[in-house]
Computed example of a mutant assay.
Amino acid sequence: MQSLPIGIDDFAKLCRGDYYFVDKTLAIRDFLDTHGEVLLLTRPRRFGKTLFLSMFYYFFSAVQAEENWKLFRGLAIERAGASYMAEQGKRPVLFVTLKDLKHRTWVAMLDKFRFLLSDLYDRYAYLLEVPGFSRAERKYFQRIHDGQGTPVEMEEALRRLMDMMQRYMSWPYPIRKFLVFIVV
Rank of each mutant, 00 (worst) to 15 (best):
Asn68Trp: 05
Gln88Glu: 08
Ala27Pro: 00
Ser54Tyr: 07
Met169Cys: 04
Pro151Trp: 11
Asp30Ser: 13
Phe60Thr: 01
Lys177Ala: 14
Glu153Ala: 11
Asp30Thr: 11
Trp69Val: 02
Leu161Asn: 07
Pro92Thr: 05
Ala12Glu: 14
Arg29Glu: 08
Arg160Val: 09
Met165Pro: 00
Ser61Ala: 10
Ala157Phe: 11
Ile28Cys: 06
Leu32Gln: 09
Met162Thr: 11
Tyr84Arg: 09
Arg135Lys: 13
Phe141Val: 06
Met162Asn: 07
Tyr84Thr: 08
Arg79Lys: 15
Pro151His: 10
Glu67Trp: 06
Trp69Arg: 13
Ser83His: 11
Val152Asp: 08
Met85His: 04
Ala80Met: 04
Phe56Ile: 01
Asp9Gln: 15
Ile182Tyr: 02
Ser3Phe: 03
Arg104Ser: 11
Ala76Glu: 12
Arg104Ala: 14
Glu78Arg: 04
Gly89Met: 05
Phe31Pro: 00
Thr150Cys: 05
Met55Asn: 03
Glu137Phe: 09
Asp100Met: 10
Ser3Asp: 11
Leu4Tyr: 14
Lys24His: 04
Arg167Phe: 10
Leu71Trp: 03
Phe95Cys: 00
Met85Arg: 09
Glu66Asp: 07
Ile77Cys: 03
Met169Ile: 01
Thr50Leu: 02
Phe52His: 07
Trp106Val: 15
Phe21Val: 05
Phe56Asp: 02
Trp106Leu: 15
Lys49Asp: 02
Tyr58Met: 01
Lys90Pro: 01
Tyr19Pro: 01
Leu117Met: 15
